[in-house]
Design a protein around this nucleic acid. Sequence first.
DNA 1: GTCTTTATCAACCAGTCGGTTGACAACGTC
DNA 2: GACGTTGTCAACCGACTGGTTGATAAAGAC
Lengths: 129, 129
Amino acid sequence: MVEHARKPAEDDPLNRVFSALADPIRRDMVARLSTADATVNELAEPYAVSLQAVSKHLKVLEDAGLVSRTRDAQRRPVHLEAKVLHLMTKWIERYQRQAEERYRRLDEVLRSMPDDDDLLDPPSRGETK
Amino acid sequence: MVEHARKPAEDDPLNRVFSALADPIRRDMVARLSTADATVNELAEPYAVSLQAVSKHLKVLEDAGLVSRTRDAQRRPVHLEAKVLHLMTKWIERYQRQAEERYRRLDEVLRSMPDDDDLLDPPSRGETK
DNA sequence: GTCTTTATCAACCAGTCGGTTGACAACGTC
DNA sequence: GACGTTGTCAACCGACTGGTTGATAAAGAC
């Protein structure tokens, strides 16, 4: 079967936001935009890549909803849309909380069980670094 | 020029964590692991991909520090390491907070400024060609 | 008008990514 | 020892990614 065509596009907003921030240049842009809007040239200045490459990075951030661009003469000021970041934190914190609570409960169960080394997987799994 | 070799590896932990979670299957695995450890076969069961593909996904999650694996006979129980998620939330929240505060301040400035659209744009950076 | 600045579009290229199949390692069971 | 289960490794493949260069659009400056 050649039907491994995979999904045509990453339509999930979470996909786009996570992968947008999986690049150090884009993360740095977001960091800088958090203190001030900037033009494409200003944004490009610190990086050792072409302006076109920076333009592409901005497109990725824009598609993820992380930035918006307006028009100011021939300049295109870039503006951080910080709300989208909340999408991610909500996702992350949900499972973080769930996991932590589970460990807490597991810990209690283990404490109330004198012998359990046959089917209760003791906590000796590595998080004791 | 062949010198566009880019960085040889994504050594930044943030790169690895963000890109690990930029995939819906891996995000789903993390979600499921947040309630219980699981073996590779158990994890693979809901997805329409081969076991080998799932094994690769787990390697990505492991390299990002998001999961750890131990040994239990021929089984390899997978365990979520939720602490790493904190790395991301810290990063995100920092710039989110910064941006929101900036908007708040800008709002105040705009309110206290009757006219300012002529030459009040003094960052004057960038021209260091 | 013509020139300059600012930014995007288009085509290309090498490397990475997510998937596949096939081989095989490791361990328990018979 | 042979077999079944569980999982990984290796090689391959097509799509996507991040970079390049060249051409072009859009707007102000002259």
